[in-house]
Design a protein around this nucleic acid. Structure first.
Lengths: 204, 204
DNA sequence: GCACTGGTGTTAACATTGTTTACATTATTC
DNA sequence: GAATAATGTAAACAATGTTAACACCAGTGC
């Protein structure tokens, strides 16, 4: 991914703002949150530092917008990976396969982009997951409904199911992103946790 | 908690290092990680900024030591709260009560000290939870063993149990600390998750 | 075509930060 | 009690976020 360079008349950028968010994201992804700075982003977008203040109030707001962007991309990543998993002929098994694909994809993202994942959920202040229209959350709900339709969801636990599944996998993802779990133990941990979730939901 | 002030002869501090970690912790707790700085800590401990470099290589290392300190305090918090929960006469119920107390205490800490909790597990690089002799992890293992002894643990899931329980509750704790879950929904979420964990472990 | 206006960029400055260097003071050791 | 190590200070450095004053340019209304 190359650094986007100035276009057009060479004075006005044309799409700073979006370009800044992209540059900031790449910076965090490759060098970490601490390396994110107004001046670094300005350099990467080929613009003077002060120009960024026409598009963001301050560094903190830029971070927040990058964070939102990452949440979006995470959701798209989950969706894409789930829709690419091969299905069987059993509708019942497919519900489970697609559910597990979501879990795997979630951990996968945390492993591939740990620094992005770490800031995905900063500053959701008083905006709960279940309300800020998060794509990932919707995918989870949808998947649980699929489980229900094929009889793999214990009705007693139905309303709690999304929370249980989310926090279980999210917990692991956080630990993976922070490298608090050894690389070689991550796959095993995921299998254990998905097993646990499925036992909890009654899906067995 | 007052700012520790210079003691003794007024030139040598006597216990900078520990005092710095304490000051840094209080700073983070009350104003957030972004407000942590060498100069702020120097001011709080009544010392010149350069003095801190006799005790820490740089700001990053100070952060790491604060992080370790927080992990320790979190463990002690869990232990204290668990040992203060009233027990019943049934040994079987007590195992469950103590297990749930751990979960509640974990969330409680994240709620009371969100900014501390958030940095508790940064920079555990390649030192997995299960190995760095973490007190909290030991408490969890111990509690699961208690569940096993009273027959509340499904043997098939025994080895996976710690991972399942940890990541579930840790996931919620992270969301709570980041305020991605509304205050009034937190208690319900915890109950749902503990239910889920107990179903997963076979503890019913 | 042309002035004007709002949006977007630049440059130069400011206060503040982490960090280093050279030096001062105290503790400790023989 | 002198030498030495440990621990503090002060002053400087480059780099940072941010602001203010000015420059350019696209679009609108005449």
């Amino acid at each position: 991914m190359l650094t986007p360079v100035r276009k057009r008349s060479d004075y006005h950028h044309g799409d700073l703002g979006h370009a800044a968010i992209r540059a900031a994201k790449n910076l965090i992804d490759s060098e970490g949150l601490n390396s994110l700075g107004i001046r670094r982003v300005a350099e990467a977008t080929g613009v003077s530092p002060a120009a960024l203040y026409r598009h963001f109030e301050n560094l903190e707001q830029l971070k927040a917008e990058v964070s939102a962007q990452i949440r979006l991309e995470l959701g798209e990543f989950l969706k894409a990976k789930r829709d690419r998993t091969p299905l069987s002929r059993s509708k019942s098994r497919n519900a489970l396969i697609r559910f597990e694909a979501l879990g795997e994809a979630y951990i996968d993202y945390a492993r591939k982009h740990p620094r992005l994942f770490e800031i995905a959920f900063i500053h959701c202040d008083e905006k709960p997951i279940s309300e800020f229209g998060d794509l990932a959350w919707e995918l989870l709900q949808e998947s649980i409904k699929e489980l229900d339709e094929v009889g793999l969801l214990d009705r007693k636990i139905a309303v709690a199911a999304p929370m249980i599944a989310w926090s279980s996998v999210h917990g692991l993802a956080v630990l993976v992103a922070q490298r608090a779990i050894l690389q070689r133990e991550q796959d095993q941990a995921l299998r254990q946790i998905m097993d646990g979730v499925e036992r909890a939901l009654g899906a067995r």
